[in-house]
Amino acid sequence: MTDSILYTPQAVEDALNRMADAMQAPELFLVGIHSGGADVADAIQQRLEASGTRVNRGNLDISFYRDDLDTIAPHPLVRRSELPFDVAGKDIWLVDDVLYSGRTIRAAMDEIFDYGRPASIRLAVLVDRGGRQLPIAAECFGFSHEAPADCNVELVTDGEWLIEQRQVK
């Protein structure tokens, strides 16, 4: 079993800056997916606000929108979903840390539609690690890296942010 740093703090910092640049607009609706996606959305929000963008933020916990309630841990830790703006007619950026199968994103889109009918939803992720099981793609990403199926790719946020790739049995 080997632990490895896939992307260093400096690389993550650069990637977040690139993403914020790419998302520039006068006003944005940014929805993070708990918990990693919410952290990434916060980081992007800071950068966008520094450059004068008006950012409306929301967070989703999609635990109860997933299609695998029977197979996840019996009692997952769930946070409150908060979308403090009306989603109807808005152009929404959905933000997550790592994009893998695409199931989380599908669940998040289902949840957003339960709040209302947005004009559009686009996806921004820090890492696209490949291995998609659904026809979902990120329009904005920090890194694209094809990770082996027996590895976890994880954003570590204690201290300086970095991205690890870890083999699981």
Partner: peptide, 22 residues
């Protein structure tokens, strides 16, 4: 745990579309 989980469900009951696929 159950009380916190209940807290996270309050919001669904206040949405216009009161349904989750859980």
């Amino acid at each position: 745990y159950l009380v916190n989980l209940g807290d996270s469900f309050i919001d669904i009951n206040r949405r216009p579309l009161k349904k989750a696929p859980t």
